[in-house]
Design a protein around this nucleic acid. Structure first.
Length: 256
DNA sequence: ATGGTAGAGGATCTA
């Protein structure tokens, strides 16, 4: 069983790459963020044509999330249950006995920004919901673009990023609070290459210089973490023509 | 020189 997450930065632009990636990698689950599509424009037929189901929620221009899966999803949810939010950032569904939660956490812009305080309110709401979901599902995965680099080793230059959005202490505390409710950062279950990142700014030749951050994550409940045999970043995707600024992150689970 | 690039949409906003 293979689960993956990928911020595609416009599914309209990236659809050929997504189709190609699905054919090549055959994941059971692919979580997408920043689809930037309203639901009527979601390319459900193109994805169905290669044997995949979709659940999605989106809006014009910004945000938007989707779960692409081999199996049809059940108990679909498209928003945080106790947080009023016009922005489409959450989709969850159940596949067999596995609960999949896909999130596009607010970016926050700068610490002075109202978007930052929105982010710091959004994260506890996610935490409350994840906590309640864990009571119902022992096999749970929380995947997505968290817009948080958990530790300094997840940042190409921690000095430059000290106190900046994606790296501030309140954001890192919020991330650790997700681990504290019973989730495990699958990436750190294994030895990984130094300077492993999932996002590189389009500007300043950041990718070529490997100036990146690890802000996309796959968090697993104990029952899933104990079956996890691999977690890796598909960096080759970021080298393609007209890429997303994020690379896919993939986990493999055994016993399925 | 507060820069640079990408996406959406059609002037800026977001990242």
């Amino acid at each position: 069983m293979k689960l993956a997450t990928w911020n595609v930065n416009s599914l309209k632009v990236r659809l050929p790459q997504v189709i190609e990636w699905l054919k090549m990698n055959q994941p059971d689950i692919l979580c997408l963020q920043e689809t930037k599509l309203t639901d009527e424009n979601f390319p459900e037929q193109e994805i169905a044509a290669i044997g995949y189901h979709s659940v999605f929620v989106g809006q014009k221009t910004y945000n938007g999330v989707a779960i692409i899966s081999k199996q049809k999803g059940a108990d679909v949810l498209v928003a945080l249950p106790d947080f009023l939010d016009e922005q489409k950032r959450v989709v969850a569904a159940t596949y067999g006995d596995m609960r999949i939660i896909n999130v596009y956490v607010p970016n926050g812009e700068t610490v002075e920004s109202e978007k930052y305080s929105y982010k710091l309110k959004w994260l506890p709401a996610l935490n409350r919901w994840v906590k309640s979901e864990l009571k119902n599902y022992s096999k749970m995965a929380l995947l997505g673009d968290f817009n948080i680099a958990p530790e300094d080793r997840d940042v190409y230059d921690p000095e430059i990023w000290l106190g900046k959005v994606l790296c501030t202490l309140p954001e890192r505390d919020a991330f650790n609070n997700l681990l504290n409710v019973g989730l495990i950062d699958s990436f750190r279950l294994f030895e990984q290459p130094d300077k492993s990142y999932t996002w590189w700014d389009y500007r300043m030749m950041a990718f070529r210089l490997n100036r990146g951050l690890r802000i996309d994550h796959i968090l697993l409940s104990d029952a899933l973490a104990s079956t996890c045999v691999k977690c890796s970043i598909d960096k080759a995707v970021r080298k393609q023509e007209r890429p997303s600024d994020h690379a896919p992150l993939v986990v493999e689970l055994s016993n399925y």
